[in-house]
Amino acid sequence: MDRLDELESQSVYVLREAYAKFSDLCMLWSVGKDSTALLWLARKAFFGHVPFPLVHIDTGFKIPEMIAFRDRLVRAWSLQMLFGRNEEALARGATFPGGALTRLECCRALKTEALKHVLDGSWPRYRVDPATGEYRPVTDRRPFAGVIVGLRADEEGSRSKERVFSPRDRRGDWDVADQPPEFWNQFKTDFAPGTHVRIHPLLDWTEVDIWNYIDREAVPVTELYFDRGEGRRYRSLGCAPCTGAVTSTARTVAEIVAELTTGSLSRVAERSGRAQDEEDGGGLERLRSEGYM
C-alpha cells in the first residue's frame, strides 16, 4: 500500500466507525478542498452513498463561487445537505464587514455561534433540493450527536493535538488537557447523555496529501484554488473579506502540488492568507476551544 492508500483506508475506517456508533450523525462541509475530499472518502466508505446529511454554515460572506460549487455538487451527487446561518447578526450588521466587530469576534458570531445552534437545532435549517437546486426550510431540528469534521493536524498548532473522536461537553467546549485515550483504533464511543462528539477522519493528512488524493481520484474542487490568468489563487478558502489570495500561477492540481512541495509555497504556512489568525497570538486556539472548526 502506498501512503494515499493507507490514509484512505484509515479515513474510511473512521467514517464507518462513526456511522456504526451514531444515529444522529452529520458531516460538516465547508466546500473547501479538505471537506470535499472527505465527502469523496465518505462515498468510498459507503460505496457511492452518503448515508448522513452534510451541514454547511453559510456566513453570508463566502466567496460566491463557493456557494455555486456547493449547489452544483448537491445536485450532481444527490446529496442531503443542510445549511444555516446567524440570521440575527447578519440582519443587524453585527459583523466585521459591517464595521461592528473585529475579525475574531465576527468568526465567533457567524461561524462558532451559527454552527452551535444549527447543530443543536435551536436555529433554522435549510436544505438544497437535490432535484431542483431550490432552498427549502427543514422542519427536522433533531440535534446532531456526532459531527464529522475535515480538520487536519498539520493546519496549525492546536489541531495537532486533536483526537480522532473528540468529545465536547454540553456547551461544545474542548478540554485539551483532559482528552480520552485513543489507541489501537479503539475510539471513545461511549458517552454520558448530553455529550456530543467531533470526528476527525483527516487528522493524519497533510495539505499535500489532500492535493495528491484530489489529483489521483479526480475529486472536483472549486476553480478558486487555481490561477485563472491573474497570477493569483486561493490556497485556503473562507469569507471574502478575510481571505487573501496567494501569488501563484498554478493552474492544475499537479502544479499546486509542485508549488507546495518544492516551489514558492513550500515553506509558507497554509493559513497565512487567513487574516483572523493573526489578530491574537493564540486566537485560533481560543476559538477552537470554544467550538470553532
Partner: peptide
Amino acid sequence: MDAGRSQRRR
C-alpha cells in the same frame, strides 16, 4: 510533480 516522493511511506 515528483510523484514518487509524495507517495512515500510515512
